Computed example of a mutant assay.
Amino acid sequence: MESFRGRFTNKIDAKGRVSVPAKFRAIVIAQGLNGIICSPSFKGAYLEAGGPAYGAMLDQMINRLGMFSDAHDNLAAALYGESQDLSFDGDGRIVLPEEMRAHANITDEAMFVGFGARFLIWEPKAYEAFRANALGDAKSLGDLLQPVDGVAVPPRPVGGGI
């Protein structure tokens, strides 16, 4: 599965339409959906989105929980009950519903940020504040990244560069 990567800021018109980055559209269309699955995040003032592969990952995670447990019900309500399928128009735009825009404090611009299996939609200044904190915290988290299935990690360049 191809990962969502990069940051893109696009204008929102008076009807709430915004162009989804072509790179992101291509990924979800390749997964068989002419649109995105989108929901307000229960973690903060932004939106979470992706294609069918993202939806399948959510299904797997939620289905691991006991069907009648509070954890299952609470996460299902947040992730399924609040989500919407937003179709692409002929120009690659979606209409962001007013309640989603309000949740994320999005008015005239939306920033699409790749997060691997999903992407997030932010009010640009809010993302920049999150990004500054995340990059600072990432410095102490690098040791958590480990090779998968014996894949070798290339040695770091002399001088500590990336």
Rank of each mutant, 00 (worst) to 15 (best):
M1W: 02
E2F: 08
F4I: 02
F4Q: 05
R5S: 14
R5W: 07
R5C: 11
G6P: 07
G6E: 04
R7I: 08
T9M: 03
T9V: 12
K11P: 02
I12S: 07
D13Y: 03
A14F: 00
K15M: 00
V18Y: 01
S19G: 01
P21V: 00
A22T: 13
A22R: 12
A22V: 06
F24R: 11
F24C: 06
I27R: 06
I27H: 10
I29S: 12
I29Y: 01
I29N: 09
A30V: 04
G32W: 08
G32A: 08
L33W: 05
N34I: 06
N34S: 13
G35V: 04
I36D: 07
I36Y: 02
I36T: 06
I36R: 07
I37N: 11
S39C: 03
P40S: 15
P40M: 11
S41G: 14
F42T: 10
A45I: 03
Y46S: 11
L47R: 07
G50A: 09
G51P: 09
G51D: 05
G51Q: 04
G55I: 01
G55P: 05
A56H: 06
A56F: 03
M57E: 09
M57I: 00
L58F: 12
Q60W: 05
M61H: 12
M61P: 08
I62L: 14
R64C: 09
R64W: 04
G66L: 06
G66R: 05
M67F: 14
M67R: 09
F68W: 06
D70R: 13
H72S: 08
H72L: 02
N74E: 14
N74S: 14
L75M: 15
A77W: 08
A77F: 12
A78M: 14
A78V: 02
L79E: 07
Y80W: 12
E82A: 11
E82P: 00
Q84L: 11
D85T: 14
D85I: 09
S87W: 04
S87E: 14
D89Y: 01
D89L: 03
G90H: 03
L96R: 03
L96H: 05
P97L: 13
P97A: 05
D108K: 12
E109F: 03
A110L: 08
M111G: 01
M111K: 10
M111I: 03
V113K: 01
A117C: 05
R118I: 06
F119R: 13
W122I: 10
E123G: 03
P124L: 02
P124H: 02
K125G: 11
A126M: 06
A129Y: 01
F130G: 01
N133K: 15
L135M: 15
L135I: 09
L135Y: 08
L135S: 06
G136W: 00
D137K: 11
D137V: 01
A138V: 05
A138L: 14
A138P: 00
L141S: 09
D143S: 15
L144M: 13
L144T: 03
L145G: 08
Q146G: 09
Q146M: 13
P147W: 08
G150S: 12
G150N: 08
V151D: 10
A152W: 03
V153C: 04
P154Y: 01
P154F: 04
P154T: 05
V158A: 15
